[in-house]
Simulated scan of single mutants.
Amino acid sequence: MHIDLTGKTALVTASSAGIGFAIAKGLAAAGAHVVVNGRSQGSVDKALAALRAELPAASLQGAVADLSDAAGTDALIAAVPAADILVNNAGIFELKPFFEIDDADWERYFQTNVMSGVRLSRHYLKGMLDRGWGRIVFISSESALNIPADMIHYGFSKTAQLAVARGLAKLATGSGVTVNSVLPGPTLSEGVKAMLKETAEKEGKSIEQAATEFVRSQRASSIIQRPATVDEVANMVVYVCSMQASATTGAALRVDGGVLDTI
């Protein structure tokens, strides 16, 4: 299958590292003009340099914006007025006992993980509908369906993304615009590496070993019995953004290594 996104502009939020960076790389390799977003100029510049080193012919631009509030979203929209592909990847996560999650935490997760995608979709979807083609992808999580007891606020926000994406897909009925969610499972991103670094050092293990042990102990239903790579998640997203995925919409597509025990 040859995926060609030449002539399409793709905005990938929080794409200076991790899953977002891998998605930006995949879309750029497919010919899209990719907007790399991060919260600081330094992180965006570093990501752009890395992408250009690997893909010298790629069409890229940077856009600095913190999407944790409406002002940051407005700044991103001002920098990038139109897009054919929107990947709502911005998100935060942490392990935290329920009784320690205060109102400010709940609001922070809702604003960053849910409202950033709502605000951007509200803007970019209009243009997609007018043009008769577009792709919106929400990067949710298997935690949207398998709510983790140690980060309920995160699971809640990821479930909310599924609801928004499904509703937007229905809104775009018959238009040529698709809206989907992609659900990664445990993935060896920079964020997960940082979360496991202390444990790995304390136990004298590599981060990869610690990540595999985490999957086997905390996500024991995993069929692959290891974390996914960021590129494995990005592959699904690039396909969903392609012309070939025109009949896939309103879906929650799993890249969870089989963690969710459902048929």
Rank of each mutant, 00 (worst) to 15 (best):
Y154G: 01
E100K: 15
H123Q: 09
E142D: 11
G91L: 01
L196I: 09
E203H: 10
A160N: 07
V118I: 13
E107G: 08
G132L: 02
G204A: 03
L196C: 09
G185Q: 04
T173P: 08
E201G: 09
V118N: 06
I139Q: 06
A160H: 10
L129S: 03
L196E: 02
A194V: 14
K197M: 14
L95C: 13
E107C: 12
A82C: 13
H153D: 07
K197A: 15
D130W: 09
I152T: 08
A200I: 06
L129N: 04
N180I: 02
A165V: 01
R131A: 15
R135S: 01
R166F: 07
K170W: 14
A144H: 06
E198N: 12
K96N: 02
M151L: 15
Y124G: 02
A200D: 00
Y154W: 09
W133C: 01
L188Q: 06
T159R: 13
V87P: 14
A200K: 09
A83R: 08
F138S: 08
W106K: 02
E203S: 08
L183A: 12
Y109G: 03
G191V: 05
G204S: 06
P184Q: 00
S189Q: 02
S121M: 06
R122K: 12
T173G: 13
S175P: 09
V164F: 07
N89R: 02
P97G: 06
N89G: 03
A165G: 04
N146D: 12
E198S: 14
L120C: 02
A200T: 03
V118S: 07
A165K: 03
E107L: 14
H123V: 03
V177T: 05
V118E: 04
G117W: 01
T159P: 13
S116A: 08
S121E: 06
K96Y: 07
G176N: 02
M195T: 10
